[in-house]
Lab assay of single mutants.
Amino acid sequence: GIPATNLSRVAGLEKQLAIELKVKQGAENMIQTYSNGSTKDRKLLLTAQQMLQDSKTKIDIIRMQLRRALQ
């Protein structure tokens, strides 16, 4: 079985993952909103794209940590 310490770690990672998935969803929504907007929305679009990139990276890292914890 999986050690108890790993189980609480997994629960924490799953919570983090859920949050990051919401951030990713929000960033994707912002990108959709701003991509057909005016030029003043360009900065917001770039910010949203950066957020999305960061979020995807975090999600990958969390998933990797989850896999390790579940081994």
Score class of each variant (00 low, 15 high):
Met64Ala: 11
Ala27Asp: 00
Gln65Ser: 03
Arg9Val: 12
Leu45Phe: 06
Leu7His: 14
Ile19Glu: 13
Ala27Gly: 01
Gly12Val: 15
Leu66Tyr: 01
Gln49His: 07
Lys24Thr: 03
Ile61Lys: 09
Leu45Ala: 02
Gly26Met: 15
Ile62Thr: 01
Ser38Ala: 11
Leu70Glu: 04
Thr33Arg: 14
Gln53Met: 09
Thr33Ser: 12
Gln25Thr: 07
Ile2Pro: 08
Glu28His: 04
Ile19Asn: 08
Gln25Trp: 07
Lys43Met: 09
Leu45Trp: 05
Arg63Leu: 12
Gly1His: 12
Ile62Ser: 00
Lys22Phe: 05
Arg63Ser: 05
Ser8Val: 11
Met64Val: 06
Arg67Cys: 13
Thr39Trp: 06
Thr47Gly: 07
Lys24Asn: 02
Glu20Ile: 07
Arg63Pro: 00
Thr5Gln: 10
Ser55Gln: 05
Lys40Met: 09
Ala11Glu: 14
Met51Glu: 05
Asn29Val: 11
Pro3Asp: 11
Thr47Met: 15
Gln65Pro: 00
Gly12Met: 15
Ala69Glu: 08
Arg68Ala: 13
Lys24Pro: 00
Leu70Trp: 05
Pro3Ser: 06
Gln32Ala: 13
Arg63Ala: 04
Arg67Gln: 08
Pro3Cys: 15
Ser55Gly: 01
Gln71Thr: 08
Ser35Met: 14
Val23Ile: 12
Ala27Pro: 00
Lys24Glu: 02
Ile19Ser: 07
Asn6Trp: 03
Ile19Gln: 10
Ile31His: 01
Lys15Leu: 10
Asp54Trp: 05
Ile2Glu: 08
Ala11Arg: 11
Val10Leu: 07
Met30Phe: 05
Val23Pro: 00
Gln50Arg: 15
Ser55Tyr: 01
Leu13Pro: 00
Gln25Ser: 07
Leu66Phe: 01
Lys22Thr: 06
Asp41Gly: 03
Lys24Ser: 05
Gly1Val: 12
Leu21Gln: 04
Ser55Asp: 00
Leu52Pro: 00
Gly12Ala: 15
Leu44Ala: 07
Val23Gln: 06
Ala48Cys: 03
Gln53Pro: 00
Gln65Cys: 12
Ile62Gly: 00
Lys22Gly: 05
Ile2His: 12
Leu21Cys: 13
Ile2Asp: 11
Pro3Lys: 06
Leu7Thr: 09
Glu28Lys: 04
Asn6Leu: 10
Gln32Phe: 09
Glu28Tyr: 06
Gln32Cys: 13
Glu28Ile: 11
Ile62Cys: 01
Tyr34Asp: 01
Ser55His: 01
Lys58Asn: 04
Gln50Leu: 09
Ser35Thr: 12
Leu44Cys: 11
Val10Gly: 03
Gly1Pro: 10
Glu28Met: 10
Gln16Cys: 13
Ala18Asp: 05
Thr5Gly: 12
Lys22Arg: 10
Lys56Met: 13
Glu14Trp: 15
Asn29Ser: 09
Lys56Arg: 07
Met51Tyr: 03
Gly12Ser: 14
Leu13Thr: 00
Gln25Val: 06
Asp41Phe: 04
Lys22Ala: 10
Gln71Ala: 11
Thr47Tyr: 14
